[in-house]
Each structure stands twice: as C-alpha cells, then as structure tokens.
C-alpha cells in the first residue's frame, strides 16, 4: 500500500477534531475525502503532511512509518501539499515561488525541464513569472500553489480545498488539471473537498467524513448515487 493511515486521532486542546479515522491510497489513485465544514478534513491532510501531530495513530508511507517525521523531511520523501487558501509567498515573484519548491537546486537542467512542463500546464504562470505573487488573482494563486507543489516531482500530492474562493469556471479548470495529472502522469492524489460533486467526479474512491469519523467509503461514482450522499452533499 502507498499510503496507509490507521486509527488517527487528533485533538486541539480538549476538542477532538478527528477520532479514529482509517484510510489508504494505492499508488496512482485519486482519492477524495468529502465532508462538511469542521468535519476534520483539513486536519487529516495536515496530519499526513506532518504540519500537526496526531494524538494517536500511525501514518505509513511506502511501507515506512512516518508518524514522527517532521513535515520538511516528508516533503523531501515526496509528499507535497497544496494548502488551503494557497499560501503562496506574497512578496516573492511567481518564478521565485516555484524555485522555493525545488529543494537544493543542484540540478538546474531538471528544474528548467519541470518548469517548462508546468508552464505548459499553467500558461498563466508563464505570463506572470516576474510578477509578485501578491498581485495574482485568487485563481492564479491557487494554480501557483499547485505548481509550486509539483515542481519537485512529488509522489503523493495532498490537495486541500482547492475550489475554495474560486469562480466556478476555474474550479472546473483546476479539477481538470488534477485529473490530467493523475491519469496522464500517474500522480497519486489525496483530495480534500467541500465541493463534493466536482471531487467525486474525478476520484476513483472516496471517504465521507462527519464530525471526525468516517461514515461512508467506497467507489466514488457509487457514492455519487448513494441517496444519503446525494441529499447531504450533492443537493437534489
């Protein structure tokens, strides 16, 4: 198994945000975790990245337990996150933002190779490469955030609420890109989303989260026709 999370518990002080969640990802899968606000989705993702420590449970990546390893080392092991609200570095240019994602630029050739590929996927970034990231629109910042995570050729991409604050047209665009990355480049993606329809649509499997526990799991398209999911998350 590529990524396995077992018995995950996370607390913020006395409040338990995630209480006993298990899930897994096979290599090359696109899996999403859907759920309402405050269900613990972002917490789970941050835990997998290593930004917040779990209270209990184990995270196993490529057969190795990584629960106690700090985030910057996990990043070097090939896990990258597209954080909520993009979190680009505002006073760095688009190009410099991408450069930060490429740890230890010994290999300039590889970097420019990745860069030209990313500029192909996100043409808007090429046009804005000399601009400060703070001058980009929300959608452009989101694209920059994805590109920044991808520049180092990660094996596992964690995507946190990428649709938040984007106009509907852009949401489709971003999801299309994620789908392409998964299908054409075999990138393993864990998607955390409030926009259940869009994420289920491109996922292979999905987990439904409710107040810190997993209530449903299975094939994404089957979940889409599940009456409960339909009523609560998809509407109509």
């Amino acid at each position: 198994m590529f990524l396995e999370v077992k018995g995950l518990h996370v607390s913020y002080g006395d409040i338990e945000a995630v209480s006993g969640v298990d899930f897994y990802l096979e290599k090359g899968e696109l899996v999403s975790i859907i759920g309402a606000n405050g269900a613990g989705k972002t917490t789970i993702l941050n835990c997998v990245m290593g930004i917040i420590p779990p209270k209990e449970g184990a995270i196993i990546f490529k057969g190795k337990e990584i629960t106690g390893i700090p985030d910057f080392e996990r990043a070097r092991m090939g896990i990258r996150i597209v954080p909520e609200r993009s979190r680009v570095f505002p006073r760095l240019t688009v190009y410099e933002n991408l450069l930060t994602g490429f740890y230890r630029i010994r290999d300039r050739e590889k970097f420019s190779e990745r860069l030209s590929w990313l500029y192909e996927v996100f043409p808007v970034l090429r046009n804005r490469q000399g601009q400060l990231a703070s001058t980009l629109s929300g959608g452009e910042q989101q694209q920059l955030s994805i590109a920044r995570a991808l520049i180092s050729n990660p094996e596992l991409l964690l995507v946190d609420e990428v649709s938040m604050g984007l106009m509907p047209k852009l949401v489709d665009q971003v999801f299309e890109i994620l789908k392409r990355l998964n299908e054409e480049h075999g990138l393993t993606i864990l998607l955390v989303e409030q926009n259940a329809y869009a994420s289920l649509n491109i996922s292979k499997r999905a987990y439904v989260l409710e107040t810190g526990t997993c209530v449903l799991e299975g094939d994404a398209h089957e979940l889409m026709s599940n009456p409960e999911v339909k009523e609560v998350y998809l509407g109509n």
Binding site: F72, P83, F89, L92, E96, G101, Y103
Partner: peptide, 16 residues
C-alpha cells in the same frame, strides 16, 4: 524569505 512570509508553508515545501 519563504520562512519569513509563511513559515508553515515553507516547512511543508521541504525548507527546514
């Protein structure tokens, strides 16, 4: 600069 601006994001990018 990355640490100065967004320490958490920088750390998650592999910058210790």
């Amino acid at each position: 600069y990355a640490i100065r601006e967004e320490e958490t994001a920088a750390s998650a990018m592999g910058i210790s």
